[in-house]
Computed example of a mutant assay.
Amino acid sequence: MKKIVLNLQLACNNLNGIPNKSTFTRWIRCIFSSYHRKCIELSIRIVDEMESRSLNMYFLKKKIPLMFYHFHFILLSG
């Protein structure tokens, strides 16, 4: 069984309908079941509309909120 390291950040006031951490972990385990790594590390941040707009303006130069963003992480040696 793979080790799942999940950093779940809930940065919004309304948590209605947002799954709990164990549900996210179960989904992640299913998604990465054929991924050949001993450990999977993932950060998920749930934000409100205001932060979504701010991120969208910063990264995409658009004034509307988006449903999700994804960023690749590369660990640098040294």
Rank of each mutant, 00 (worst) to 15 (best):
K62G: 00
R37D: 14
L55G: 08
L75H: 07
K3C: 02
E49H: 04
S34N: 15
F32S: 11
N14V: 04
F59Y: 11
R37H: 15
N16E: 15
L76P: 03
E41Y: 10
K62C: 01
H36G: 00
R45N: 12
R45F: 01
I18G: 04
L76G: 14
L8M: 01
H72V: 00
N14C: 10
K62I: 05
R26S: 09
I44W: 06
K2G: 04
Q9N: 13
S22Q: 14
H72G: 05
R26E: 13
F68T: 08
L10V: 06
M50Q: 14
F59W: 06
G78E: 09
L15Y: 01
M1D: 13
V5E: 15
P65Y: 09
M50P: 00
G78W: 06
F71T: 10
S34K: 14
I31T: 08
Y69E: 07
C39M: 13
I64W: 09
P19K: 10
N56K: 02
S77R: 11
I64V: 14
D48K: 09
C39T: 15
L55M: 11
K62P: 01
N20I: 12
L55S: 07
N13L: 04
V47T: 05
S22T: 09
W27T: 10
E51Y: 08
L15C: 07
L60D: 14
I46V: 12
V5L: 14
Y58K: 12
I44H: 08
N7T: 09
N56A: 07
L15G: 02
G78K: 03
I44C: 07
G17W: 01
N13C: 05
L6Y: 12
F24V: 03
S43E: 13
L66I: 11
R26K: 12
G17C: 03
R29P: 01
M57N: 13
M57E: 13
Y35P: 00
L66K: 15
N20W: 12
G17Y: 00
N16C: 10
Y69L: 10
N13E: 07
N16S: 15
M1S: 13
L10T: 07
F59T: 03
R29E: 13
V5D: 14
K63N: 11
K2I: 01
V5T: 12
L55Q: 08
W27H: 10
F32I: 04
K63S: 10
I28P: 01
F59A: 04
I40D: 06
K3L: 05
L6E: 09
I28G: 00
I74P: 02
I40F: 13
S52G: 14
I40C: 10
L75P: 00
L8C: 04
